[in-house]
Computed example of a mutant assay.
Amino acid sequence: MQLNEHNLIKMQNIIKEHQFEHAADYLIEHTQQGIRLSKKGAEDYARPCHSRIGGDPDLPEETEWPLTSDGTPMTFLAQLQLRDVAAHDATVSLPLGGMLYFFIGVDEPAYNIEHRVLYLTEDQTAAAVRRRAPEETTLEEEFTGYRIEARATLEPPNYAYVDDEIVEDEEHDFESYEDLCHQLTGLESDDIATIFGYPSTQHGDCEHEAALMLLTGSEYNYSMEAAMQQITDHCGGNAERAQQEIRDTLLLLAIDSDDDVGFCWWDAGELQFYIRKEDLMAGNFERTYCSLYSS
């Protein structure tokens, strides 16, 4: 999606400040409009239905706790007050109100992780109160709840997605590019999650993995070419439409490892949720994909 006018001007100014004019067109085309979530203090549960990560969720009494396929209660990860979060959504694709909840099953293996993304409208959450987690959930660890706050960001391609040959030249190495990236994202030490933008990975193939499963129900075999062929076949041989499906596979939420909350995804990695653009625009969170990246 194209940058809006405000973000385009901001992007141009930062590019000029860091003297990256040689890569300006590339960066403007490939930088995405995202949302960062940062911790704003330990949760005291005095006020329900604001954005929170870890701890316990606020749920209406009639809402059942999500279970895995074998009947085990899933572990709660985060809740997002969309009235607040969507105010920072330059893509205008998130619902403007209601609550979004993220639950996870066992995080092993690292692909096609059983999970649940639950969306409740403002009317449904009007009577929501703190719901204590069941005594045993899929993850054994107990996670400390933190209030979180959203802000709009610009998300340039990270090391797995960027074209090094375009951004680097005789005067600009990758460290210089990272400095530019940090200013675009406004990176803060309390950042813990990201909506939209680029996931952490080594190979830049996360969207291929997610799209393959969401579209065809097939598991990824770590070949982008094979995945594209399967998606192209699913699209009736239309390669251009298959490429668009990859572009329309969006990072709904990436949750980082964090000592304060107690999240540690394998070797201090990142937990990632994906959704198809058409489902997001329709407010349909029943079809999502979850995977884990660890270096």
Rank of each mutant, 00 (worst) to 15 (best):
Ala210Arg: 03
Ser189Asn: 07
Ala211Leu: 06
Glu209Val: 06
Leu187Asp: 11
Leu214Tyr: 02
Tyr198Trp: 12
Gly204Val: 04
Gly197Gln: 03
Leu214Ala: 05
Tyr177Trp: 06
Phe196Gly: 00
Gly217Cys: 08
Gly197Glu: 02
Ser218Glu: 15
Phe196Ser: 02
Leu212Thr: 05
Thr194Asn: 08
His182Ile: 07
Gly197Met: 02
Ser176Glu: 14
His172Asp: 04
Glu188Leu: 10
Ala210Lys: 04
Ala211Pro: 04
Phe174Ser: 14
Phe196Val: 00
Thr185Gln: 14
Leu180Trp: 10
Tyr198Val: 05
Gly204Thr: 02
Cys181Ile: 03
Asp169Arg: 11
Asp205Pro: 01
Ile192His: 01
Asp191Pro: 04
His203Met: 14
Phe174Gly: 06
Asn221Ile: 10
Glu209Leu: 13
Cys181Pro: 00
Thr185Met: 15
Glu209Ala: 15
Ile195Asp: 03
Ile192Tyr: 00
Gly197Thr: 05
Ser200Phe: 08
Asp190Ala: 09
Tyr220Gly: 08
Thr216Glu: 05
Ala211Asn: 07
Ser200Val: 13
Glu178Pro: 00
Glu188Met: 10
Phe196Arg: 05
Gln202Arg: 13
Thr201Pro: 02
Ala211Ile: 02
Ile195Gln: 05
Gln202Val: 09
Asp169Lys: 11
Glu207His: 13
Gly186Leu: 05
Asp169Pro: 08
Glu188Pro: 00
Phe174Val: 09
Gly197Pro: 03
Asp179Leu: 11
Asp191Met: 09
Ser218Tyr: 13
Ser200Gln: 12
Glu219Asp: 14
His172Asn: 14
Gly217Ala: 06
Asp169Glu: 10
Gln183Asp: 15
Ser189Phe: 08
Met213His: 15
Leu214Gly: 03
Tyr198Thr: 02
Ser176Thr: 09
Glu171Val: 08
Ala211Lys: 05
Asp173Lys: 04
Thr194Glu: 05
Glu171Gln: 15
Asp205Leu: 15
Glu188His: 11
Thr185Phe: 08
Thr185Arg: 15
Leu184Ile: 03
Glu209Ile: 03
Tyr220Pro: 07
Leu180Gln: 10
Asp173Ile: 04
Tyr198Glu: 04
Thr216Asn: 09
Leu212Val: 07
Leu215Ser: 03
Tyr198Lys: 04
Leu180Asp: 07
Glu175Pro: 02
Asp179Ser: 11
Thr194Val: 09
Cys206Pro: 00
Tyr220His: 09
Glu170Lys: 12
Leu214Asp: 00
Glu207Thr: 11
Cys206Asp: 11
Asp190Asn: 10
Gln183Cys: 13
Glu171Thr: 13
Asp169Leu: 07
Asp205Ser: 14
Cys206Trp: 00
Tyr222Thr: 06
Asp205Lys: 11
Asp169Trp: 09
Tyr198Cys: 05
Met213Pro: 00
Tyr220Asp: 08
Ser189Glu: 13
Thr216Gly: 07
Glu207Phe: 06
Glu207Cys: 12
Ile195Trp: 03
Asp179Gly: 01
His203Phe: 15
Gln183Gly: 03
Gly197Ile: 04
Asp169Gly: 09
Ser218Cys: 14
Ile192Gln: 01
Tyr177Cys: 06
